[in-house]
Computed example of a mutant assay.
Amino acid sequence: MGAGHDAVAGELAERLRSRGHTVRTEDVLALLPSGVGAALRAGYRGVVRRVPGLYGWVYAAFLAPGPERAPDGQRGAGGAELTGGVAVPRPGSAPLAALAERPLTALVDRWQPDAVVSTFHLSAQVTGRLRERGTLRVPSVVTVVDFAVHRGWLHQGNDVYLCLTEEAARTAEAATGGTAEATGPVVPARFAEAAEGGGHPGRWRAEFERLAPGRPVVLLSAGAWGVGSGLPGTARELAARGFCPVLLCGRDERLRRRASGLPGVVALGWTEDVEHLMAAAHALVDNAAGQTAAQALAAGLPVVGYRPLPGHGAAGLRAMTDAGVSELARDRRELALILGRVTDPGPVRERRVALGRDLFRADAARRITELTLAGVRAP
């Protein structure tokens, strides 16, 4: 849906090609009947931007893991609700997955790949269903890009799950009865290299020093679509508390124009130079626990969650906090206090940076290659 899934797919493809493999990347939404995928993407974008609370309800109904409480207070196993003593399965993405099965099968039959790799949860449902029925005869590897593994990712038909954290791997393994392992985020090496002095972060450092000399630089992420609650107000508050807030507005030009007029705030549109921008910063304030947060961890930036997007954003930031690689601020005062701790050179910052980098345990592309060559289906 957003840029994060595409970024992971692109990075995996690049790594696999560098190992001598041939890769074809397909958008699962493009495999749906004409107009359906575009409508889904437009609808999702409109909901998260304008009525995020509605998306939170959709997430709870369709994707959130675990059982929910029925009106009569009873619970059912496997996420089913109990109404009047009768287990009613919660809705899922099976109807959408079914629509993509035939196009994906035709594509696999034509191209004859050695494996199919999913970086989006709807794709994982399609491959799981096909693999379970034996229609897909090659290994299906799911590369989970979310810190919190929701139900949309999980299907017992898939061969193996590559997850961001050990807890996420345990969740996937318990839910599917299959194999899962923690390989860590899939982020280009240039983010870690820039943080270690590679490239040219000096341009950004000089710019921030000119605009706010001596102030810690804090990036505020709004994702590719510029989505978030109260972003200009948060940036203005941080500037008043002695930080240099840099609001990453993505492709939302209207948000960039609004924030540009705020005193002490730097508002940036879409930029391809994120690794050097992060190398010149001191922390990231994030609301989605997506690919920007993973890139920040690779770049050695402490991540602080604040005003998370309902649904996967809130769940992901809680999972990051549980893993020790982030903190979740409840209000602006607490946000400033946490940022003060993690931007100040010393043991607190060093520990957070080290915990973040410890997530990068293995090369997912190498594991995909090894698993495909082994050709052994998980029990």
Score class of each variant (00 low, 15 high):
Pro113Arg: 10
Asp114Met: 04
Val116Met: 06
Val116Thr: 03
Val117Glu: 01
Ser118Pro: 00
Phe120Val: 08
Phe120Glu: 13
Phe120Gln: 12
Phe120Arg: 00
Leu122Asp: 04
Ser123Trp: 05
Ala124Asn: 12
Gln125Thr: 12
Val126Arg: 12
Val126Ser: 12
Gly128Gln: 05
Leu130Glu: 03
Leu130Cys: 12
Leu130Ala: 09
Arg131Met: 02
Glu132Ser: 15
Arg133Asp: 01
Arg133Trp: 00
Thr135Arg: 14
Thr135Val: 15
Leu136Cys: 07
Arg137His: 10
Val138Cys: 09
Val138Asp: 02
Pro139Ser: 09
Ser140Cys: 01
Val141Asn: 02
Val142Trp: 03
Val142His: 06
Val145Lys: 00
Asp146His: 06
Phe147Asn: 06
Phe147Gln: 03
Ala148Leu: 05
Val149Cys: 07
His150Leu: 03
His150Ser: 02
Gly152Thr: 08
Trp153Cys: 11
Trp153Tyr: 10
Leu154Met: 09
His155Phe: 06
His155Cys: 03
His155Asn: 05
Gln156Ile: 01
Gln156Met: 01
Gly157Leu: 09
Asn158Ser: 15
Tyr161His: 09
Cys163Ala: 15
Cys163Thr: 15
Thr165Pro: 13
Thr165Cys: 13
Glu166Met: 00
Glu166Lys: 09
Ala169Gln: 08
Ala169Trp: 11
Ala172Glu: 01
Ala172Lys: 08
Glu173Ala: 15
Gly178Asp: 00
Gly178Pro: 02
Glu181Thr: 13
Glu181Asp: 02
Ala182Asn: 12
Thr183Tyr: 00
Thr183Phe: 02
Gly184Cys: 06
Gly184Ile: 08
Pro185Gly: 07
Val186Ile: 04
Val186Arg: 07
Val187Cys: 05
Pro188Met: 07
Arg190Gln: 10
Arg190Tyr: 01
Arg190His: 07
Phe191Val: 04
Phe191Pro: 03
Ala192Gln: 04
Ala192Cys: 02
Ala195Val: 08
Ala195Pro: 10
Ala195Asp: 08
Glu196Ser: 15
Glu196His: 14
Gly197Asn: 10
Gly197Ala: 10
Gly197Trp: 12
Gly197Leu: 12
Gly198His: 06
Gly198Pro: 05
Gly199Val: 07
Trp204Met: 09
Arg205Ala: 14
Arg205Glu: 08
Ala206Lys: 07
Glu207Asn: 00
Phe208Ser: 06
